[in-house]
């Protein structure tokens, strides 16, 4: 009896966690999957319509725009907040007053995405916005524009706002990685006559791989799920030109109450997130294992 209880103990310990994961993660996921095959408006019972929602995805031009914007966001956030975060981390690591710079770049992260969106919407204002006011003041009136209504400037402008917010987080993670790198290999290659760039390219960057994996995976997932900043700044407009898959999913589900169609977008988005982040992690872990 006691032996049986001892054997069962680990399973009993994980029961609460299993319950919460099941109730709040797995069950909603399964329900979303089921809803994606139905027509449902929250008021009348879901009606099974087979693959109609998925067929509609293939024929809806707005879905293609959302998909394209989602990938633009993915590329943009990999290039800017990640690239810039790495660059700033490398620079800050070797300058005096590093603490001040760290704080300056980290502060935007403490502001919520909604507040960030509001601040940048005002800054991008065509008439009274700070950006256009500065451009006009320095004689660059030709560069002043309606940042959030011109396509594709609006998506790029929002990626810039996101970069302002997220660069600090990536910088801090990279800094932790840089400070953990042993000094010996770096000094060794310098003694061998390697330039700064060669040292970074062939020694520092490969040694940063664990941190790069974390940053890139987080950025990938965040960019693919991008919603709040866009919803505050443009609501996916004008004429749905800046929608990402997450915004389209929300619009279909909670503005139009096409819950079934919204669920099908959620499923497609989840598959993309799992495939991209999963294959990135697997490739890196395999390489890590080989080394």
């Amino acid at each position: 009896m006691r032996r049986a209880l001892r054997k069962a103990a680990p399973y009993i310990y994980i029961l609460p966690a299993l319950f919460f994961v099941g109730a709040f993660l797995l069950a909603p996921m399964l329900y979303t999957f089921y809803l994606s095959f139905t027509q449902y408006d929250l008021m009348t019972p879901p009606r099974f319509i087979g693959l109609d929602n998925y067929r509609r995805l293939l024929t809806e031009p707005n879905f293609l725009t959302s998909l394209t914007n989602t990938f633009v966001w993915m590329l943009g956030t990999l290039l800017l907040p990640v690239g810039l975060g790495l660059f700033i981390a490398v620079v800050v690591d070797r300058v005096a007053l590093a603490g001040v710079f760290k704080s300056v770049f980290y502060i935007p992260l403490t502001i919520s995405a909604v507040a960030t969106g509001l601040i940048w919407t005002w800054m991008y204002g065509p008439d009274l916005g700070v950006l256009n006011t500065i451009l006009r003041a320095v004689g660059l009136s030709g560069w002043a524009r309606s940042w959030l209504t011109e396509v594709p400037t609006n998506t790029l402008a929002m990626i810039a706002a996101w970069t302002w917010k997220m660069t600090g987080q990536n910088m801090i993670i990279f800094l932790v990685g840089l400070q953990a790198i042993p000094k010996e290999p770096v000094e060794a290659v310098k003694l061998e006559g390697a330039t700064e760039w060669q040292t970074f390219r062939y020694v520092v960057f490969p040694l940063l791989r664990p941190m790069t994996m974390v940053v890139v995976t987080m950025s990938l997932i965040n960019s693919l799920n991008q919603f709040d900043l866009i919803y505050v700044m443009t609501q996916g407009g004008p004429y749905r030109s800046s929608e990402t898959l997450a915004v389209t999913m929300y619009r279909e589900s909670f503005t139009m109450f096409h819950m079934g169609y919204g669920a099908s977008i959620a499923i497609v988005l989840s598959i993309i997130v799992i495939l991209l982040s999963g294959s990135y992690l697997r490739a890196n872990l395999k390489q890590e294992g080989a080394q």
Binding site: Y124, G125, P126, D127, L128, S146, L148, T149, P238
Partner: peptide, 20 residues
């Protein structure tokens, strides 16, 4: 018309107030 990117609730009242 004003620039269509102007926010009707945040910017327009101020532009209206200062006669723009």
């Amino acid at each position: 018309f004003v620039d269509p990117g102007t926010d009707l609730f945040a910017e327009v009242p101020r532009m209206f107030a200062n006669g723009q």
